[in-house]
Design a protein around this nucleic acid. Structure first.
Lengths: 191, 191
DNA sequence: CACCTTAACGCAATTTTTTAGCGTTAGGCG
DNA sequence: CGCCTAACGCTAAAAAATTGCGTTAAGGTG
């Protein structure tokens, strides 16, 4: 799973770059069950033993690549209000994760033995929600609770993607956000 | 994935039984990354080629075993009331799934390529919830909606188990059930 | 800047796993 | 009882994973 490298520059970095890029390209073309370490090694121009020594096995490499792909490159879009911010973000999240590559990424991340990859990609989601929460607070809106957002919105989406028992349509995602924010309103009305 | 066997009895069934049992025993002793097909074959007294032909590869076999283990053997406990029924069931569910073997089962199920295993083990949960729902209706209680129960209670538990961002303690599970039933009460109060 | 240390790599031999052909065994059915 | 063939065992060949050892090149030091 790409332990923290003692040497971060030069050849080592170039190889990581080449291998990651090769894996991503392969994931687009061939089915994941067809992908092998020697195949990746050849296309990336490295020796298989290098991959084995550095990542351990194929599943760890795939998990590493998946986490790298999930690393956020930008903050979620600012739509001007908390509700629409959450809706847009979650709809987009569901779209990305329910796609073929998204599903593959989640699968790879969860297959990683240590579970460290899962925790990290979970942090990415928390970070985005935190951004939205602070943005709402800065606007003067009463900010939402992040743990509750995960329980009421993120978790259902992820569950249905993983277990394939329901399609996470945009409408469904918006209804989740609606229920989430609605439950807060009703709660505050009752106390 | 153990395609529906054309021959269900006799030798074929004995081999499936032996292989399944061997896998379960191995999962208790050795780490999953150590388990190999030849290892299972030897302990089960069959040839590796039999396993490869029947299950495809190791991950499919593990998924098949996991689904078989998750197959319900009994209905959830009847505690006399819908709320306590749900609480007991979900607390027990969280305990089983967050254990080491439970996590391994979920991981194996989700790693299965076709996702057919995931859908099936998802059906088991739905079936149990359906039992609780009918039981509640028979008592005269207003039955809960199963999809909402999945979204509000099951999904968060599963999410936290998979991503290891939170421990699904009994108290936490009960609070999920409480919020779920509470949201229904508040909703009906507002209409 | 030249040198030293050693992490990380390439190569190749070995081991293990996976695949595939082919004959054999034993369910299930007429 | 006897036929048909799904499913198995065995074996050989192919592919993948592991390991030892020499080589390359980061990154630090005098």
């Amino acid at each position: 799973m790409a332990r923290e490298m003692l040497r971060q520059g030069g050849r080592s970095a170039r190889i990581q770059e080449a291998v990651h890029r090769t894996v991503q390209e392969l994931l687009k073309r061939v089915d994941r069950s067809e992908i092998t370490v020697p195949m990746i090694a050849e296309k990336a121009g490295v020796t298989p033993s290098t991959i084995y020594r550095r990542w351990g096995d194929l599943s760890e490499l795939l998990a590493d690549v998946a986490v790298a792909r999930m690393r956020p490159i930008a903050d979620p879009e600012d739509t001007g209000a908390m509700a629409s911010d959450l809706e847009t973000f979650m709809v987009q999240y569901a779209e990305e994760m329910s796609s073929k590559v998204g599903r593959a990424m989640m699968s790879d991340v969860l297959a990683s033995t240590e579970g460290e990859a899962a925790a990290r990609c979970c942090q990415y989601t928390y970070h985005h929600l935190e951004t939205l929460r602070e943005r709402a607070a800065a606007r003067g809106e009463t900010p939402f609770d992040i743990n509750e957002a995960v329980d009421l919105v993120v978790a259902p989406i992820v569950y249905h993607i993983l277990f394939r028992d329901r399609e996470p349509t945009p409408d469904y995602c918006r209804s989740l956000v609606g229920r989430f924010l609605g439950s807060r309103a009703e709660f505050s009305r009752l106390v």
